[in-house]
Amino acid sequence: MTGFVESEERRALRAAVRDLAAEYGPEYFVAKARAGEKTDELWRRAGALGYLGVAVPAEYGGGGGGIGDLAAVCEELAAGGCPLLLMLVSPAICGTLFARFGTPAQKDRWLPGFADGSVRMAFAITEADAGSNTHRLATTVRRDGDGWVLSGAKQYISGVDEARAVLVVAAHAGHAVGSRRRLSLLVVPTDAPGFAYRHIPMEVVSPEKQFSCFLDDVRLPADALVGAEDGGLAQLFAGLNPERIMAASYATGMARRALDQAAEYARTRSVWDTPIGAHQGIAHPLAHCAIQVELARVMTQKAAALYDAGADRAAGEAADMAKYAAGEAVVAAVDQAIQVHGGNGLATEYGLGAMLAASRLARIAPVSREMILNFVARHTLRLPRSY
Rank of each mutant, 00 (worst) to 15 (best):
A309Y: 06
Q280I: 08
G80F: 00
T268R: 00
Q106F: 09
A138G: 11
T2W: 04
G152N: 03
T39S: 13
Q292G: 10
H341P: 02
D320V: 05
E264T: 12
A165N: 09
I245C: 04
P112K: 07
D223T: 01
G316H: 05
Q261C: 00
N133W: 12
R363K: 15
L42E: 03
G50M: 00
S179M: 04
I157K: 04
V331A: 00
I157Q: 04
A258T: 08
S359E: 01
D146F: 04
A46H: 01
A196T: 15
A124G: 09
A173C: 05
Q261W: 01
G47K: 02
L215A: 08
G253H: 05
L286T: 06
L233I: 14
V226K: 02
V376Y: 01
I276V: 15
D312Q: 14
A72P: 03
G351T: 04
C213N: 05
R164D: 12
R136F: 12
L13C: 09
A255H: 06
T2K: 12
A305N: 11
V30T: 10
V73K: 03
Q261G: 02
S249V: 00
I338C: 06
A362Q: 13
V73E: 00
R164H: 10
I364M: 09
G68K: 02
K32E: 08
A303T: 08
L233F: 10
Q155T: 15
L215F: 15
L215K: 02
A234R: 14
Q292K: 14
L240R: 08
Y250Q: 10
